[in-house]
Design a protein around this nucleic acid. Structure first.
Length: 400
DNA sequence: AGGTATTCACATGAAACTATTCTCTGAGTTAGG
DNA sequence: TAACTCAGAGAATAGTTTCATGTGAATACCTGT
């Protein structure tokens, strides 16, 4: 089949999608289902901003995909619109603290805020206080109120301490004209507890919890989105129900459900099917899992990959193995590849990271007289293991 | 037999170090007046 | 003399090393019967 032919077919075949952007996570619907009370709460708390009174700082938490970000964005959008028409100097800023190399450190967070305020800051080289000074000046040069949303703040404090948040919370006392209101979002429920008490009391002057959606609610959300996203009658009966059941099963993650549906649609389209069937959904679920793992692994540094490769080498031999065994195979692997050998300390951390990624299952056990270690087993399907091996071999320049 | 103390093989934490990438500063150099 | 160049000092960051301390339970070692 000629390539031209393929493209002709591609054009002729009418897409299953009408507007795929509706199913992307960046999409903010004009109506947010099942979050009315939460939205009302957020609005109540933030409303004083429209009269240029600084609202209480707000802290929101709830599991992933419970509509936290969406609701906040929704409220902010309408506030900003209102402010614009009434000439109120109100600004809203949304920053995701998880984005690597964008806002995941103190320096970069401030730099990112400054960028939002319309000034560029070099990515490195400046002392942090200098950056703070620029930030203060920029904020304070006019009378204004700023609503600063920090999504996934837990990521920020995880690596660095909570100094950053402390600095941010006490910024207001330094400002003459401007005012800053913090809105923190986190999906880690215990995050606030380990915070410096001063930061804690200041950051969570108001607190809001977002409960997970249940299966029926996810179903409605999916239905509503799919009406816009897909052409009429392309979804086989039961697919939406199953999709929502999948996601409700772990913890009511609506974003996952939406992703799943979109990918199922893409898979169906690619396979030339006129409708989205159950099988596409199953396929999508598998694909999501494999893709996230492959993505995570390929973005990791070489040494990390080496350790993973050592695990893969070891896994066919036995079901469970220990840190020490992995370290040994890793060492001999390094000898072959001529990498320098990391300390066991580091390898131990890498194994912990692999556990977090869900690539391996690690449990800390005590073997009594024979020490304490991680008991590790691989938690991947055979096909994915092979794929990973291939990827790693390429990346580590291993042949044979 | 029953109770304690040891001991192994790591885990976990904190701090310090290294290499890289970047800025800023100021001395030295150049070119034009 | 003003503009330009370029080396050196100082920062931020990721990835790591070094040093230090923690830890759960199978075993070794008692103890008194």
């Amino acid at each position: 089949m000629g390539i031209t032919n393929f493209f002709e077919n591609f054009l002729k075949q009418d897409s299953l999608f009408q507007d795929k952007s509706v199913l992307l996570s960046s999409y903010v619907p004009e109506e947010v289902l099942y979050r009315e009370s939460q939205i009302q709460e957020v609005a109540n708390i933030l409303a004083p901003a429209l009269r240029m009174d600084k609202p209480s700082n707000l802290f929101i938490y709830g599991k992933t995909g419970t509509g936290k970000t969406l609701s906040v964005k929704h409220v902010l959008q309408s506030m900003v619109n209102l402010a614009a028409t009434n000439n109120i100097p109100l600004k809203a800023m949304y920053i995701n603290c998880k984005l690597k190399r964008v806002a995941d450190t103190e320096y970069r967070l401030i730099a990112q805020i400054i960028k939002e305020l319309g000034q560029e800051i070099p990515p490195t080289g400046l002392p942090t206080d200098e950056v703070y000074n620029i930030f203060y000046k920029l904020l304070d040069q006019q009378k204004q109120l700023i609503l600063l949303v920090l999504d996934e703040i837990d990521q920020l404090t995880k690596k660095m301490g909570d100094d950053i948040l402390y600095n941010l919370t006490r910024i207001n006392s330094e400002l003459k004209n401007a005012q800053l209101c913090l809105i923190g979002i986190s999906n880690n429920l215990i995050f606030v507890e380990n915070l410096d008490p001063r930061v804690k009391s200041s950051l969570s002057e108001e607190e809001l919890i977002f409960p997970p959606y249940n299966a029926l609610q996810i179903q409605d959300i999916l239905k509503k989105r799919s009406e816009k996203a897909f052409s009429p009658d392309v979804i086989q009966a039961g697919v939406i129900e199953k999709c929502s059941a999948y996601s409700a099963r772990d913890h009511g993650d609506a974003r996952r459900a939406i992703d799943l549906l979109r990918i199922a649609g893409e898979l169906a389209e690619r396979s030339g099917s006129k409708i989205i069937e159950m099988s596409h959904l199953d396929e999508a679920e598998k694909k999501v899992e494999t893709d996230t793992i492959i993505n995570a692994v390929t973005n990791q540094p070489k040494q990390f990959q080496s350790v993973l490769y050592a695990v893969l080498l070891l896994s066919p031999q036995k079901k469970n193995f220990f840190t020490g065994e992995i370290y040994e195979t890793y060492k001999s692997l390094c000898q072959k590849t001529k990498f320098n050998i990391l300390t066991q300390r580091r390898v131990s951390d890498i194994l912990a990271e692999l556990d977090m990624l869900g690539v391996i299952n690690a449990k800390i056990i005590s073997k009594g007289r024979y020490g304490r270690t991680r008991e590790i087993s691989l938690s991947l399907e055979e096909s994915l293991v092979l794929k990973l091996k291939e990827i790693l071999e390429k990346s580590l320049l291993l042949s044979q």
